[in-house]
Write a protein that binds this DNA or RNA. Sequence first.
DNA 1: AAAAGATTCAACCGCAGGCAT
DNA 2: TATGCCTGCGGTTGAATCTTT
Length: 329
Amino acid sequence: MGRAPCCDKNNVKRGPWSPEEDAKLKSYIEQNGTGGNWIALPQKIGLKRCGKSCRLRWLNYLRPNIKHGGFSEEEDRIICSLYISIGSRWSIIAAQLPGRTDNDIKNYWNTKLKKKLFGKQRQKQGSRKGKEINTISTISNNINNMNQNPCWPELPIMQQPIQFSNNDHTSIRKLLIKLGGKFSENDQLTNVVSPNSQYPIDNSSMQLMYQNHINLISSSPIDNVFNNMTTPNTDPYNMNGEASNFTAEFEHMINNHQQKLDGLEFLYEDDVFIDKSASTSGGNLDWESMNPYVLPLPPIAASNDGGNFQQGVILQEGALDELRYPMAQ
DNA sequence: AAAAGATTCAACCGCAGGCAT
DNA sequence: TATGCCTGCGGTTGAATCTTT
């Protein structure tokens, strides 16, 4: 059937916005808001633009407090951490970086961060192909066996409702729901995150989520696969919040999961070290099927140490130096 | 100085999901 | 329940800019 176009493409202007258009859009929204209808908005203002284009322009450029360029090391760390844990959910990642837009972060990742990581990773992989094949084959077989086990749920079900605070970002909530989480109706205030925190996610919820995942995983045949992820001696996500090297974390993820990690396929580019037979024998090892098991990031207890990011994977201070300043190595 | 190649990033596109009817 | 509209999202494109040869 096909969708009706959101606007008449022949009668709308496309391409870069002029300062006049920007001014019109900005002043209107500042005075009147969007009116809850982007489609109708350009006509009201007299702009020959598609409503979606107006929305994008506002959200990515005209909106107050937007930051462009100049990503800090802390922001790099957060982006990488979240990308590892949730993949290319740019809107969710952006929600943790005040003033940043999903588009900005996406561009930044695709043009800079990814390349830096890619460069690092490939250097190391070159000398370790044989070992990787064995490790990945074993894990893949375990996962394949596990997938055939009817007791294994398609999605993890939360064993008790999570109480989310009113301050929680809805996108995080949505994500957790997508991943199988259930929430109480009343969303009672349970915020235990430091008021100084720059990134106010409900830590208790994340912790509970994590714990439930661990419970689920522990009761499943995939134990032997994922125990490697949670054993303190081998886990680069140090549960005590001690220093853990970013590159090591990244390698750990790659080495322990054959799934494509939604965009991390680039890590395998040109390197034929994946045992492809494992993934063609009935097992779907893509991100979607693995995501619930990858998600459980070791939660770090909230603290008041100056408002640093306190959820999920915390990268060591300075761990991204080598990414940001590769020539300094 | 100029051409070619690489990079950046604003903007576009199409899809999925939510919501109203 | 079915349908259509709108919003939000992530992937992609392409013009502008920068770097290299």
